[in-house]
Each structure stands twice: as C-alpha cells, then as structure tokens.
Nucleic acid binder design. Structure first.
Length: 990
DNA sequence: CCTGCCCCATA
DNA sequence: GTATGGGGCAGGA
C-alpha cells in the first residue's frame, strides 16, 4: 500500500557532511539466529539469541560508530525491516522466494522484540508494506548519495551490493568485513553497476531467481564483460559459439529479463519518513536499560548503565510485548536417575572358566559389556571449585588411568585456546572442568567476559599438570596428538598415554573410520552429541568458549566417557589379535614425535610467494588472452565443461577419454596428446592450468597458513588417515609441494631455513622397490641393489636384453614405468595408459617381466590369495591393512582391491621403516648433542632445520638412523640408501 | 552453504 | 595400476 500523502523527497535535508547508516534488520535477524547457540534463552524459556545479537550490534554501532576512526559516527541512522513477504516481485514472478521455509518457531517471537529493541535504543525502525527492506535501503541510499551525503549499509547481503558506489559503502559487522567496489568485483567479476546483469543471468537459488540454466557466476561475469549488459547479450545471443549456452540464452531470454527485474532494487519507494527525520538522537539510558533488564541481558545492561549513567538497580524491567510465543508447561527433559554407573568392562569377570583369561575372551567380554551399558549423562559433573577438581585428580591416581579430553576454540591445535578439560575414570563417571567460557550472551562482536564460577585457568592447570605428567597414571585420549599439542602450549607435557584412535587404527585400518563418532557407533552402539548441535556448523558456527557451560559439559564429559569405554573395548583386542607391538612401536610413539614437528613448523618466504603469485597471474592473463584468441571467443578457461565444449564441440577435435559422468575428459594427458598432434590451444591450456594450480593451491594459499604467533607454517599430520600406514598432511598439505617443474620448484624455494641454519633433506632412494625385493625375495633385484646399480636400467637390461651402458633413455623409461606398475599392482590397462601404448603391447611387457622375475608374480599371487582368505594383508613389521570388500563379485572392484592389497605391504612397510627412523631420531640427535630439528615428513623424506655448523655431523647421523631403521626388528636383505643434502631452501636441499 | 565432479600437486 | 589433500566450478539444498 502506498500512501499518497507521503511522497516526499526522502533525503531532502541531507548534506555532504551527513553520514547515514542503514541497518539491514531483516537479514541480521536470520543471521544472528543461526550464528548463536539454539539454547540462548531467557529464564522463562523465551528464545532471545537473535535479539541478544542484535542489541549488542546496535549498541556497539551507537558507541563506536562503524570503525574506530574519529569522525565516523553516524548523523542519521535507521534499522530497516521487511514488512511481509508479499511484494511487487511476487506479482512479476509468483515463485520468487516462494520456496522459503517458514521461519523457525523459536525465532518468531523475536521479530517483534527486535523492533522493540530498536526503539528502546532510540533508533528509527522502518518498514513498509509491499516493499522489501532492500528496496527501502536502496531508496534512502540512492537519494542520500545524490545529495552528497555518505551512506553506510550494515549488512552482509549480496543483493545489496548493487548499491555500492563512491558514497555508498557496506559493512558486515558480523564478519567484520567491509565491502567496496573491489570486493564486489571479487564476488561478481564485475563492478557494482553491472551486478544486476550478472545476477539476472546466474540466478539465485536462495531467492528462487531463475536466471539462465547452465550459467553460473563465473560465466555470467564473462558474458557481461564481453557484451556490456543483459539486453545487448540477449539481442546478440545467436552469435554465442557454445551450442548449449546459445540455445539456453535464446530459450530463457524472457526468464533472464524477469530475473533482472527481480534482482533490481527499487530505489524510488515513496517513503513515509524523510531521511532528515532519521537524525540520531541521544540515547535514553533508562529506557534501554529497562528493556535489556526485561530480557535478562546482564552484561549489556551493565554496560549501558555504566555508559549512560542510568541507575540500573532503580529501573524496573520493561513490560515486553511478545507475539508468537507460548511458555511450555513442563520441562521437556527428565533425567533417568537411579541407574548405577556401568562397571568397568575390561575387568568383567571371565565366567570363571579355565580359558576365561584368554586374551580373546577378555576382549569379547569387554566388547559385550560396552554395548550392554548405555552411555548415560546422569553421572557427569561440572567441576567449578578446586576441591572437586582435586577429588577427581585423586580418583584418577587411585584408578591408575583416566580419559582426558580438551575443549578449545579451534580445530587447529597450534592456535587453539583451552576452554575446558573433561575427565572420565569409569564408564558413566565423567566430569567437565570449564576454564575459559566467556559470556556468549549474544555478544557477536567479541568482548564477552569470562563467565563467573569457573576455576581460574592457572589454578586448574597447576592442579592438572602433575596428574597429566604423572608417570604412574595412564592418560587416555581420542586423537591425543591434538590434546598433547594444546596442553604443551600451556606448559604441560602429557606423560604415559593411550590413544583410542590409534588403537582402532592399529587393529582395524581400512575398516570404517577411526573418529570418535564412528567408533562410538561401532563399539558402543551410541551416537555422541554431534559437535554441530553444540556449536552450530558452517558460517554460523560459534567457538566453544561461547557455548553455554551446561551444554558444553554434557558434550565434553560424554566425550571423555566414550573415550574411556572405547579404550576398554579396544585395548584388550591388541593382545588377542597380536597387534600390541604394532601399536606400541609404530603408532603410539608417533604422537609426541609428530606433535613436536607440528609445533616447530617451517619458515616460508612470504615476499617470494607474493611475487610468484604476481608472476603467475601475469602468465595466466597472457595465456588467457591467447587461449580466447585461439578459441575465437572468450570462455572460462577454468571450467572443464566449457573447455570441453570448445575443444570437442566447436573445434571438432577428436575426444579421447570420457569422465565417469560421460563428459569428454580434458585432463592433462588428453590435452598433451592433442598438443602432440600440433594443436596450439590444448598446449596453452596445459600451461594455464599449471600456473593456475601453482597460484591458487600454493603461492596464494600458503601465506594464509602462517601462524601469527610463531611466524611459521604448521601443518597437521594425520596418523590414521590411510589404510597403508602412511601419514597424511593437511592445512596445509606439505606433502605435495611441487618439485617436478621449474615453475613449481620456485614454490619449493620459498621454504627456507631460519638464519644461521640450513634445511636438510634426507630421502630414501627407491625404498619401495627395495622393500619389494626383500619381501618377494628376488635375487637379481637384491643383487642389483647390493651392487648399487641403476635399478631401472638393470630392469630394462634384463627385460629387453640390452646392455646398461649406452642405453636408450626411452627403454629405461619403459622399465621404470613397469617397476612402478609392479608396486601399484600392475594391470595392462594402466601400464598402457602410462606409456601411451596398446593394451596388447603392455600385456607383452608384463609377460616378459614375469618371465624374467617369476618371484614377483609368485609374490603377487600369494598376496591376492592371502587377502581373499583373511581380508587383510600385512607389512614386514606386522601392520595390517584391511580390505573387507575384496571378495566382492564386481570384477572391477575386486581387481581394484587386489591391486591395493598388493601395494599395501610395499607402501606400508616403507612407511613403517620411516616411522621407526622418526621415532628414534630426536633421541639420537640429543645423544650426539646435535641441535637439528625434524620439521617435515614426505613419505620417504625427512626435512630438518640444522645449525650451519652442525650440518655435516647431522647428515651422517640422520643417514645412519634412517638406513638402519628396520633393525633390529627386521634384517632386510637389501641395503637401504639415503641421499641427504643441506641448503638454504627446500628446493636446493632436495 | 554444502556436495559432487574434475583436475592436479606429491610419494 | 597405489596412497593422499585441495582448489575451482556448477548445481541443488
């Protein structure tokens, strides 16, 4: 409804000195709601999380303005809301926002409260029937800017980005992000003036704006940049080269035009109030306090009281008008009391039978007891004083073991702050010690204070430290490396320990996950409280210190409880299944070794990387122009789909492989083949992809991983991610730093040693082939390694009967591919693909190879038979890799598992050898008074940081430790050889 | 905002 | 042919 009386110039009285702030109230409500824990409620149960977030935001805005800078305070301000969902847009396109779900039930009463809050802070609250908040914002913003005033929109909504301009800025207070033209360009690939054109093409599934099928943001930006605007593009749609795209643009032209109308904000809404009426007025402290008091926002009430001088005690809480809320009549939850904590499963009576204490019997009893006793929170305690904490510590000492779990603010152990610790001493008997919970009272903008009633951190740590370091008390954790690192940063070095994740990994690698949730399901039949239920997920996730203590306690104590129960199930299995040695010698000792490596981190040269990013970007731009030229039209080079259309559609090149969804593959091998036939375009694409990869994955990303405290990059190693026993590295992955190409090695050069030090790289030469020679007992191979021969040349010589001297490099290359193929469980198909030869030829090679080395074929056949019979294979140190699906009837899958099973003992044994070297390394270095620090592991390579003066001594010690790593457990029948070198950076050391 | 797909970096 | 982790794109929630 438009009222005729109020059609005045909305900004008539604004001048260039004015600063108008327009707060997008509607989106704020939803985002605050999702960002906050669902449990934020007033004492009578009224949900107020979004209101709390809103009040904090508004208060901060009024106090500090948008930025800490002087003179940034607003002169005019309003909060704008949607009135109802029906707007003129639904008349153009009935489906617009039609699929929007109803707002969640506990949000409904908060809509009115947020409007009340706005008024309580003496800020104008504006809404108008028939128009979205965005239209009102557009109207005020455009008009104010036209009068020269400055406008700041407080929102994170991309739909408002079309308004950004020289005088109109946008700030997302929830993410502390300022949006200007560069940010718009980054998001949409065009400036603010073209945003609606791009949105019209790409559509928006959230708002149900249809757009044109098959066109996403990237392609839309490309098209708009070429044609200028939507109308021109649609008019010239028939000139588009890609068939599908052209057809879609023509067929859905009208839909695109409608979409543009939908996304275009209406900036001439006849508003009821002129902007001049939005002038900021003095805050009425008493009114604000009364409102905040009614909502029980104690922290904010106090702050507002202090700032405005209002007498909090004297002010009565305001009367709240609440719509859409009915107080529940009874508490929904009840405790299942009267149940005694479950007994200790592992100590369960073995039926008294003679064979009762057999390891297997104990293990079975433990597993059954674990499933039988349900996980139950009634025995959990929240520890808030030192007496109770001491009592728990005493109990741990008495029991001799304790499950420990730390709760922190981050998944990255190197920058996680301790929030709490949970302990468990028996199934169902667990506690949570909150230490760093802050007032999460909707305080989105930080600054929440420590919640009262928690034991001071230093006091608690002083009590916990002796227990955690006590050699007489076994500490049990799930993924201990994480807790170990966190606690180490608080000066605690965890003493003797078990890790349930590693127990599971030693016993069951290859069978399902080893995460706590998976293990709990598998062994206890219990689903632990999901983390996202406690802290949310995705963008709206809160850090654990903001989780209310009661919620946190239930979650954290359960984790300790579950960990303890898992330990009782898994530990007895070690003996029963003869895996004790693997666990104790290859798994458990890795925890402190890796934790220390991660804590050390490695230095990178950020300047060098930044320069590289620039170089790569230049190269990409140059190539992109060339590529578009060659293609005869612009397209998104990064889109395999679009590239395929160009190459195999438009240009009519012969397609090679297909992807598993049936599209033509544009992989490097396909492009290389095309390039070899003399086609320019594929060659340029390969070059572009290389630069793109180096830039996005390495030179752009790595600096973001530099820890602000240490100035170094700390990767995280996973001990239980692979089936074979290898480690994996992530965030960032430092096990895939480029090395093959010249451009790639520039990245490697950016990994540097600290001043006065060198980086030392020591890697095993051909360790997997040596392991294979040993395991399969191949005389010629063993002899060749003993003689220090070039193993690939020797293989070629054996196979093709040519002398090693003066060998054709192509012949050696073929032999090398076969050797690798053997390690990977060779197939004619794979070898043919690798060498670019026919399946028949590849078959012949394999046949010849097996004739020359029959022992290898025997080994492979035996391994296959073993895995089919047992469902697992073993390394030379007894580690098991399980393949439970190997007996599947699907011949392709079956062959795949067989190859994996052939590879696992080879890859896994090599991994075990390096683990043994790593476990011994620090002690050996210390014994030789060397100060080298082991930093990284890359499957067959270790990287150290070494004081310059100690380089030579360190090289010989490292080489000795690595080359003798298998001993004394295994006496290898081939020598291990380690190449080592030191330099200023990783590239030159490698 | 999440997921699957494709592609690609390493051993 | 083995083992990983990760980035960009596009589509569907």
């Amino acid at each position: 409804m438009i009222r005729a009386m109020s059609t005045q110039d909305p900004a008539s009285a604004l001048s260039p000195d004015d600063h108008l702030i327009l707060v997008d109230g509607s989106t704020f409500i939803f985002r605050a709601y999702h960002a906050l824990p669902p449990l934020t409620r007033k004492s009578d149960g009224l949900p107020v999380g979004a209101v709390a977030g809103f009040c904090n935001m508004l208060w901060k805005l009024l106090q500090e303005g948008l930025t800490p800078e002087e003179g940034d305070e607003p002169t005019h301000m309003a909060v704008i809301f949607d009135h109802s969902s029906k707007t003129f847009r639904s008349e153009i396109y009935p489906e617009y926002k039609a699929q929007r779900p109803e707002p969640p039930e506990d949000l409904i009463p908060q809509f009115g409260l947020i409007r009340e809050a706005t008024r309580a802070f003496c800020v104008h609250s504006i809404e108008q029937e028939g128009f979205e908040a965005d239209d009102l914002i557009a109207t005020y913003a455009r008009s104010a800017a036209a009068h020269g005033a400055r406008v700041t929109i407080v929102s994170g909504d991309k739909d408002l980005m079309q308004l950004i301009g020289p005088r109109v800025g946008m700030i997302d207070t929830m993410k502390n992000k300022i949006f200007g033209e560069p940010e718009v360009f980054e998001k949409f690939g065009v400036g603010p003036d073209k945003v609606i054109e791009v949105q019209a093409l790409a559509g928006d599934s959230v708002d149900n704006v249809p757009g044109v099928p098959g066109i996403g943001l990237k392609t839309a930006a490309l098209l708009i940049n070429e044609f200028g605007d939507l109308d021109t593009l649609l008019a010239k749609a028939d000139t588009i080269k890609q068939k599908k795209r052209r057809e879609n643009l023509i067929e859905f032209a009208e839909q695109a035009r409608i979409s543009k109308q939908l996304v275009t904000l209406k900036d001439d809404v006849p508003v009821a109030l002129p902007a001049s009426a939005l002038a900021v007025t003095d805050l009425d402290g008493a009114r604000a306090v009364a409102f905040l008091k009614a909502l029980e926002f104690s922290t904010l009430t106090r702050r507002v009281g202090e700032t405005t001088g209002a007498d909090i005690a004297a002010i009565e809480p305001a009367e709240l008008v609440i719509k859409g809320w009915h107080e529940p009549d009874a508490k929904g939850r009840q405790m299942d009391n009267g149940r005694t904590p479950a007994g200790t499963a592992a100590a369960a009576d073995p039926d008294g039978g003679a064979g009762g204490w057999q390891p297997q019997t104990v293990a079975d009893a433990a597993a059954e007891a674990a499933k039988a006793a349900p996980v139950d929170a009634s025995g959990y305690e929240t520890v808030t004083d030192t007496d109770r904490l001491s009592a728990w510590i005493a109990e741990a000492a008495e029991t001799g073991y304790v499950a420990v779990d730390t709760e922190t603010t981050s998944l990255e152990a190197m920058q996680a702050d301790l929030v709490g610790v949970s302990l468990a001493t028996a199934p169902g008997r667990a506690c949570y010690i909150p230490l760093g919970h802050v007032d999460g009272d909707g305080d989105l903008l930080g600054g929440g204070g420590l919640i009262a009633g928690q034991i001071p951190l230093t006091e608690a740590l002083a009590l916990l430290k002796p227990m955690l370091e006590d050699p007489g008390i076994l500490k049990i954790a799930q993924n201990l490396k994480y807790d170990w690192l966190v606690l180490q940063r608080y000066g605690i070095e965890v003493g003797p320990h078990d890790d349930t994740m590693l127990l599971s990994y030693a016993l069951d690698a290859g069978i399902g996950g080893n995460g706590m949730d998976a293990l709990s399901e598998r062994w206890l039949g219990h689903t632990p409280i999901p983390f996202k239920e406690v802290a949310g997920s995705g963008k709206s996730m809160i850090t654990f210190d903001k989780v209310p203590i009661e919620t946190a306690a239930a979650y954290a104590a359960e984790d300790a409880d579950v960990t303890l129960r898992l330990w009782q199930v898994l530990k007895p299995r070690l003996a029963a299944e003869r895996m004790t040695t693997v666990y104790e010698r290859l798994e458990r000792p890795m925890v402190p070794v890796l934790a220390k490596m991660e804590a050390r981190g490695i230095a990178i040269d950020r300047q060098m990387l930044s320069r590289l990013s620039g170089d790569f970007a230049q190269g990409m731009a140059r190539l992109e122009a060339e590529i578009h030229e060659l293609a005869g039209e612009p397209f998104n080079v990064g889109s395999p789909k679009q590239l395929g259309d160009i190459l195999f559609g438009k240009m009519g090149l012969p397609g090679g492989k297909k992807t598993k969804t049936g599209a033509w593959s544009t992989s490097a091998s396909v492009l290389d083949d095309l390039a070899a036939e003399g086609h320019e375009l594929p060659a340029r694409i390969v070059e572009w992809r290389q630069l793109s990869k180096l830039k996005s994955t390495y030179s752009d990303a790595l600096p973001g991983f530099v820890n602000p405290e240490t100035g170094r990059v700390h990767t995280s190693y996973s001990l239980a991610a692979t089936t074979t026993g290898r480690l994996s590295s992530s965030e960032p992955n430092l096990q895939n730093i480029p090395v093959r190409t010249e451009a790639g090695r520039k990245i490697r050069k950016a990994f540097i040693a600290e001043k006065g030090n060198k980086l030392l790289s020591a890697d095993y030469s051909q360790i997997e082939l040596r392991v294979l020679a040993h395991m399969a007992d191949i005389e010629q191979l063993k002899q060749a390694f003993a003689d220090g021969l070039d193993i690939h040349a020797m293989t070629a010589s054996e196979m093709f009967g040519v002398p090693i001297e003066g060998m054709d490099p192509m012949v050696r290359r073929r032999a090398k591919a076969i050797n690798f193929g053997i390690i990977y469980g060779i197939s004619a198909f794979g070898l043919a693909a690798q060498l670019g030869i026919s399946r028949g030829e590849a078959s012949d090679y394999i046949k010849t190879y097996f004739e020359r080395f029959p022992g290898i074929r025997d080994y492979m056949e035996e391994t296959k038979a073993f895995v089919h019979a047992h469902g697992y294979v073993t390394t030379i140190f007894g580690r098991r890799a399980h393949y439970p699906e190997v007996n599947t009837k699907n011949p392709n899958m079956r062959a795949f598992y067989e190859r994996a099973a052939i590879n696992a003992p080879i890859q896994g044994s090599a991994a075990d050898i390096l683990r043994r070297a790593m476990i011994r390394m620090d002690e050996r270095l210390a014994a030789s008074k060397l100060n080298a620090r082991m930093l990284l592991q890359v499957h067959d390579e270790l990287i150290f940081e070494v004081p310059e003066a100690e380089v030579d001594a360190t090289i010989s010690l490292v080489r000795d430790v690595m080359e003798s790593a298998a001993e004394p457990a295994v006496r290898l029948s081939v020598p291990l050889q380690v190449d080592a070198r030191a330099a200023d950076n990783w590239d030159e050391a490698h």
